[in-house]
Design a protein around this nucleic acid. Structure first.
Lengths: 206, 206
DNA sequence: CCTCTATGTTTACGGCATCAACATTTAGGT
DNA sequence: ACCTAAATGTTGATGCCGTAAACATAGAGG
């Protein structure tokens, strides 16, 4: 739950909501759990929260701004999810593969939110994801796997990201079965890139 | 241009259009060149073609059906584009990599159409892409690279598809720069999967 | 206590997908 | 050649949507 200024026992609707902005974001995240991204409507969110349609505009300049805020929440959740997965794994190569599998599983568990996350750019058209936790781990791991060669490093990083992102999208779009075992098989430290990117230069043995 | 039953010199609008279905699809494809997928409207297409808004419903049960028809056109175009790329390449490993690069370049050249293609499923929720030309080449090539082991074959095929699809989506969504040289670097027969999937078992030398 | 600002509300506009009822044109059977 | 039925278009209406303008209220700071 997000913060709310209204007392817990205050039942009837006050003229002022208390923390409408947070309430709208909560409602948005909840709606994204069950609703296709194109079917999210400001009016419905307002109804859910018990407020008039145009009240939204006191907190967001337009729908796009609300969606962008939801996308940011999605990025944060994804990062936390990956972090947890990495922590449970043993060894850095396994941890890296674990973040990849977590990326795909998060997408499958939160389809609309995941799509929103990667469909939104800031007003200048720049990625919201770039400074994400997972993005940082990705860069760090790629650097380790390709000491010295900066271009090879970038290439490996992008290949790794592309595999997990592609797998996630193809499963979300039903081009591939959303099969849990398949995720493990495709994102496997021992076989992906012939073990090159993940295993070769790492700090532990297979 | 698609077929049209109206005489070429017949200028004024007849009550019957002649071949409204094809005209709508043409207009849809043209609109997708410049318009975001969410901003395509039946009414606008009808206006473009010079027909009333509801005339569309004589040829498509609903908007979704029209979009699906456009998606099928996108699949066909993508397949043809990849086919041409493969033909120009020398050697089967290079040809395979060429289809991958073509996949990404097609996506960048036709963003809305590409998205539509992979966002649409048939009424039963099955992929429209499965029987595509490129999909077949992909299967065939993966089979060659992993003689015998059926599971490894499937894994390789999916990894290859995921890399190109992921790269395409990340570039479309501005998560990565839509850089032509970068595409070549990421999809390279000599480095991708450590050369395993593409070069090892192939029928020509590097 | 009084006013200013933040926050909500009502009303209204134009656009959308879609439905129902009506009009025209074309095709097929006699 | 006619007459009818099916195919194809049109008009009009419904109920959504995002958003703008004008108005209302509540709470904060002087």
């Amino acid at each position: 739950m997000s913060t709310s200024k209204v007392a817990a026992n205050d039942v009837q609707r006050a003229y002022h909501h208390g923390d409408l902005r947070s309430a709208l974001l909560d409602a948005g995240l909840k709606a994204l759990e069950t609703t296709d991204i194109a079917d999210i409507s400001l009016r419905q969110l307002a109804r859910d929260v018990g407020v008039s349609a145009t009240a939204v505009y006191r907190h967001f300049p337009d729908k796009q701004a609300l969606m962008q805020a939801l996308a940011q929440a999605g990025i944060d959740q994804l990062g936390a999810y990956q972090q947890r997965a990495a922590t449970k794994a043993h060894g850095s190569a396994e941890a890296f593969a674990a973040t990849g599998r977590a990326y795909v599983r998060f997408a499958l568990a939160n389809p609309s939110l995941f799509r929103l996350t990667f469909g939104q750019c800031d007003r200048a058209g720049h990625s919201l994801f770039g400074e994400n936790l997972a993005a940082k781990m990705l860069r760090e791991r790629a650097a380790r796997a390709s000491r010295g060669d900066a271009e090879a490093e970038q290439t490996l990083m992008i290949q790794a990201w592309a595999v997990v992102h592609g797998l996630a999208m193809l499963m979300l779009d039903r081009q591939l079965p959303a099969d849990d075992a398949l995720i493990d098989r495709v994102i496997d430290a021992r076989t992906l890139f012939g073990g090159y990117a993940l295993g070769s230069n790492s700090d532990e043995s297979p």
